[in-house]
Design a protein around this nucleic acid. Structure first.
Lengths: 199, 199
DNA sequence: TTCTCAAAGCGCAAACTTGCGCAATAGGCA
DNA sequence: TGCCTATTGCGCAAGTTTGCGCTTTGAGAA
């Protein structure tokens, strides 16, 4: 029961199935377009039943966005690795920077394809849920750093503002021509939130 | 085609139906509990078919939260009435204050009942969508005040931070004992966002 | 007033979501 | 090694969501 211990065969299988469903959804969505993909086809492609699909994901959108979920979750874990001396916001922005700079090294072909999928209105809407689902986790992380109450207004707002920065930057990025640098937008959004809005 | 002109009988009927569906959903949810209410029952209560329900709302949650949607929308419109000399954030906080202070005058009985309904996990999750749906509207309002681009990072972030303040305060409020003052929490959240997070 | 058209209500069908219960199986325990 | 229990996969059924097309009705033009 340590922070991230032994996988165990059972959990491995589960993770594999989830990953397979996500990958299958991505593949089919890129190939045939978002709304020409049925849950049945995805489940089929991943080798499980439709019912099992629903045991893993509540909707097609969730399955597609699971990649984003994992990535942001990873980013949140990187926050923990930041020096304890850093303030929460410093740790967050530093983690975001190392995270998004690495993201730039990905296959441009793949980025272009997934961009098309993510621009789908239904997915943009669902993305909000993905980020909101991570607010608790991030609050816990921030509170652990300062020893504050994870449910306090300050902690919750820091968490919300950070995730809102990522989300807003991503939305703006999707509206811009391909090739636009995402980190520049994230960086600008974080700076605005850092500086505050009352001035 | 002025800012808010003649309703027209057609639009009136539409608004009435939407309102009737929302009211019916609230009534039944308060009476029987959120998950014992079917769309069919709501449509029935409002005197339309299930199909028509879906023409107005994408889900039970949306119908329930339509009240919140209207209220926040109203708040956004009140922002427009603030003096042009005020900065965006000053106008937003001032509008929020007059808005939430008036909200305190509502029937405590009704507040207690709707609190129970809103605490439902499915609704808390859906609430995020409700607020996100208003980000564009609010961005337009803020941009109009300063002459900025409504899609700029600063405007979008101001909008997101303001709505996040309302949302986070609301979530915290739902977790607190009944009778807690909502405006106090909103005020604190707005102050945090106003001051910024980097210090 | 009457005609025309677009929007609204709705039935139908296909797809999606979700609680329930049963069968297979991983993992712990004797 | 062999049993016990909780978890996972999945079929089924009830309920929900959504595209399509038909019918009705408000609103503007003739």
């Amino acid at each position: 029961m340590s922070t991230a211990a032994e996988p165990g065969l059972r959990e491995r299988k589960k993770a594999a199935t989830r990953q397979a469903l996500h990958a299958a959804a991505m593949r089919l969505a890129i190939e045939h377009g978002f709304d020409r993909v049925t849950v049945e086809a995805v489940a089929d492609e991943a080798g499980v039943s439709r019912r099992t699909f629903s045991n893993y994901f509540g909707s097609k959108e969730e399955a597609l966005l699971y990649g984003d979920y994992q990535r942001i979750h990873l980013l949140i874990e990187q926050v923990r690795a930041r020096p304890a001396a850093e303030t929460p916001w410093a740790a967050l922005t530093a983690a975001a920077e190392q995270f998004y700079l690495k993201l730039g090294d990905l296959d441009p072909q793949w980025i272009a394809q997934s961009r098309l999928v993510r621009a789908q209105p239904a997915l943009v809407a669902a993305q909000v849920q993905t980020f909101a689902a991570l607010e608790r986790d991030l609050s816990t992380e921030i509170a652990a750093r300062t020893g504050d109450d994870p449910s306090g207004v300050r902690v919750r707002m820091t968490s919300a503002a950070f995730l809102a920065s990522l989300r807003v930057a991503l939305h703006i990025w999707l509206d811009k021509p391909p090739g636009t640098n995402l980190w520049d937008l994230v960086s600008e959004a974080l700076a605005e939130a850092g500086r505050g809005f009352e001035s």
